[in-house]
């Protein structure tokens, strides 16, 4: 009996160490990712010069001498993301209002799981859909990418916005009705503003999803590495730049592509961290 106690103690201690070590994995992973991306990407940025790299308007890696300016791709990413948000967020939030406040119970039981299922559709399938349905109408263009990405972020936006709307206490809505507001007036002017933090979260997640999306965008955006000129002309995003050229890039060109990844990584990280910092301070 006496011997079993220390053994049990040892087991408890060692397992709690194992749990702790497992929790550290995510710190370790982020550290490793940062180290490998930065150590492979930063030297290239330094060699080109930060401003010439970020604001250079010309990307021609195979010219002599080559030009490595990713400004067109940064603009491409921003255009496509902004368009996706402009399309996806209003439609998504209004759909969430419908699901939370106007949908008949019976329909809800069909539609809600349907939207949840659609959140899992692989981006290549969306991309293929874009190729065969959207591109014939609007061509390989920024507009096609915006529309497709707007559709792709819908399930995410609808899901989060709906739970945000549902989290608003019913008394807010009842108070609005008691003051003489109609059903929709109550929802739009009282419930929605109270849910703005959750809706903002939906927007941020949508931005993250849109800016990081790769395959679907490549399949519809045209991918010309030049300054975006019009909605109906093609453009290349940061993500597309990496996938398209990584296959054959060598040496310095490769390092520059990794540097493109670093820019993307830092941008997403900055968006997410500033959002969670804002949330923690209760500003939104």
């Amino acid at each position: 009996m006496e011997r079993r106690v220390p053994l049990k103690d040892l087991k408890e201690k060692s397992m709690s160490a194992v749990f702790f070590a497992s929790a550290l994995i995510s710190i370790f992973a982020v550290g490793l990712i940062c180290f490998f991306l930065l150590s492979n990407g930063l030297p290239a940025i330094m060699e080109i010069g930060v401003f010439r790299f970020l604001l250079g308007r010309e990307w021609s890696p195979s010219d002599v001498p080559p030009a490595f300016g990713i400004y067109p791709m940064i603009l491409g990413s921003l255009c496509v993301t902004a368009g996706a948000i402009l399309i996806g967020v209003p439609v998504g939030v209004l759909s969430a209002v419908y699901l939370a406040k106007a949908c008949p119970e019976k329909l809800y039981r069909v539609v809600k799981p349907g939207v949840e299922l659609l959140a899992g559709i692989p981006s290549v399938v969306y991309g293929f859909f874009g190729m065969v349905v959207i591109v014939p109408v609007t061509g390989n263009s920024i507009l096609s990418a915006c529309v497709l990405l707007g559709i792709m972020i819908l399930p995410t936006v609808v899901g989060i916005a709906e739970s945000a709307i549902r989290a608003v206490p019913e008394s807010y809505y009842e108070g609005a009705l008691a003051l003489g507001a109609g059903h929709y007036r109550g929802v739009f002017f009282v419930v929605l503003p109270a849910a703005k933090s959750g809706i903002f979260a939906a927007v941020v997640l949508g931005i993250g999803r849109a800016i990081g999306e790769t395959m679907a965008v490549i399949m519809v955006a045209g991918n010309q590495a030049r300054m975006p000129v019009s909605l109906l002309k093609g453009a290349r995003t940061l993500t597309a730049n990496i996938v398209i050229e990584m296959g054959y890039a060598a040496d310095f060109h490769r390092e520059v592509l990794i540097a493109t990844g670093v820019v993307l990584f830092l941008f997403v990280l900055a968006t997410n961290l500033s959002f969670s910092a804002l949330k923690r301070r209760g500003r939104i």
Binding site: S26, I27, A29, V30, L32, I33, F36, L37, G208, I211, G212, E213, T214, T239, I242, V243, M246, L257, I258, G261, L264, F265, V268, L269, T271, N272, L273, S276
Partner: peptide, 16 residues
Amino acid sequence: TTEALSGIPSIVYGLF
């Protein structure tokens, strides 16, 4: 860090 991991685009994972 977990939050950061969940936001990283998949192409960046691919690069890493």
